[in-house]
Amino acid sequence: MSPVNTLNPHRLSEAVAEDGVPIAYEDLGHGEPLVLLHGVTESRESWHEAGYVEQFLRRGWRLILIDCRGHGRSGKPHDPAAYSGRRQAADVAAVLDFAGIQRAALMGHSMGGTVALATAAYHPDRVNALIVNGAHPFAEDLSRLRAALADDFETWLAFLKQLVPDLSPNSCRRIRANDLAAVQASLASDRPDFSMALAKLDIPALAITGLLDPRWEGVRNFAELASGEFLPLAGKNHVTAFLDAETIVPAVDEFLRRVGARTTEGS
């Protein structure tokens, strides 16, 4: 594997979604492709900062890090209809097309996990494994998130700092740099239940959650629904379960190799 400067935040390519929204992504390393999808108000840079990129590259994975629409360097529509599960799943498919990848493993945290699940539901032929952390396909009321982001990002940051008192300055910078109207549009609708679409699929799944995360039971229930595997992280909440790359990367690497997440690159 050739050396890659994973600290450079500007090694970007751009796909164009089916509705014309530009979707920024990084394509790093060589080997089997693994798509990484970040949480709400974050960007692909969060995977770099938490240590996932370096560790996965060292294990020989080709990483596709996507800035989800409304975030990072991707387009930021203000229309709530632009953030449906179908639209966001199509974004992932568009990136795979632009990168010349037919099938990939998908890994997402929180919102990114929901996008990964939607991609499996709408484009199952593009997904050969699913890893979700702090996400599930069941109905979810997002009114608490909408309230925290009603005026600016400061209430949201205060909430996050209750979970991670030493939230990094870089994370705070990324969050404050968001387009507030775009983030609000992405959360305007509660998440529907699309679990039955996933129950019919034969895609290996690994569901990860911190046991202090209020979503943990939903994550466990998804693992059971998908006949998948469940990795509970004791003493971790919704955010610290993402930050625990030292535990998660080896577990994900072992899972993907064991289930044979192999793909054919190219169209």
Results as ranks from 00 to 15, higher is better:
residue 68 C to Q: 14
residue 95 V to Q: 07
residue 92 V to N: 12
residue 132 V to F: 10
residue 260 G to I: 07
residue 91 D to L: 08
residue 245 A to I: 08
residue 200 K to V: 08
residue 147 A to G: 15
residue 203 I to Q: 07
residue 180 L to K: 00
residue 10 H to L: 13
residue 213 D to L: 00
residue 136 H to R: 01
residue 46 S to I: 15
residue 264 T to Y: 07
residue 13 S to K: 10
residue 7 L to P: 05
residue 69 R to L: 06
residue 80 P to A: 11
residue 231 L to K: 00
residue 26 E to H: 07
residue 163 L to F: 03
residue 70 G to A: 05
residue 162 Q to P: 04
residue 105 A to I: 09
residue 105 A to K: 08
residue 148 A to V: 05
residue 209 T to M: 05
residue 98 F to T: 11
residue 180 L to V: 02
residue 165 P to M: 00
residue 159 F to A: 13
residue 220 R to H: 15
residue 47 W to H: 13
residue 209 T to L: 01
residue 10 H to V: 10
residue 241 A to I: 02
residue 237 N to M: 03
residue 46 S to R: 15
residue 144 R to Q: 14
residue 76 K to I: 06
residue 188 A to H: 12
residue 236 K to P: 00
residue 57 L to R: 01
residue 137 P to S: 02
residue 148 A to N: 09
residue 184 Q to W: 14
residue 136 H to M: 08
residue 179 D to Q: 02
residue 26 E to L: 10
residue 110 S to W: 03
residue 78 H to T: 12
residue 90 A to N: 11
residue 39 G to P: 04
residue 71 H to C: 02
residue 258 R to K: 15
residue 257 R to D: 07
residue 250 P to Q: 11
residue 108 G to C: 14
residue 227 S to F: 10
residue 86 R to G: 04
residue 228 G to M: 07
residue 70 G to K: 00
residue 4 V to T: 14
residue 160 L to F: 00
residue 64 I to D: 08
residue 177 A to E: 02
residue 181 A to H: 14
residue 68 C to T: 15
residue 35 V to R: 13
residue 94 A to E: 05
residue 149 L to K: 05
residue 175 I to F: 01
residue 205 A to Q: 12
residue 163 L to A: 14
residue 67 D to P: 02
residue 93 A to G: 14
residue 248 I to D: 09
residue 32 E to C: 05
residue 129 A to Q: 11
residue 111 M to C: 04
residue 95 V to W: 06
residue 125 D to F: 05
residue 191 R to S: 12
residue 193 D to G: 07
residue 262 R to M: 10
residue 108 G to S: 09
residue 203 I to H: 11
residue 71 H to T: 04
residue 148 A to Q: 15
residue 85 G to W: 07
residue 62 R to T: 08
residue 265 E to A: 09
residue 254 E to H: 12
residue 140 E to N: 10
residue 138 F to H: 06
residue 134 G to E: 05
residue 86 R to N: 05
residue 248 I to S: 08
residue 112 G to P: 13
residue 9 P to L: 12
residue 3 P to H: 11
residue 98 F to C: 09
residue 254 E to A: 15
residue 49 E to V: 13
residue 115 V to Y: 07
residue 18 E to V: 07
residue 201 L to P: 06
residue 108 G to L: 13
residue 60 G to P: 01
residue 153 F to D: 00
residue 164 V to R: 03
residue 84 S to L: 03
residue 92 V to Y: 06
residue 109 H to K: 04
residue 132 V to T: 15
residue 48 H to D: 12
residue 186 S to M: 09
residue 132 V to Y: 13
residue 241 A to L: 01
residue 222 F to V: 06
residue 128 N to Y: 10
residue 23 I to S: 08
residue 72 G to C: 04
residue 155 T to C: 04
residue 110 S to K: 05
residue 53 V to C: 08
residue 32 E to S: 11
residue 81 A to K: 10
residue 163 L to I: 02
residue 249 V to T: 13
residue 137 P to E: 01
residue 33 P to N: 05
residue 22 P to E: 07
residue 93 A to M: 05
residue 161 K to P: 02
residue 91 D to P: 03
residue 245 A to V: 06
residue 161 K to M: 11
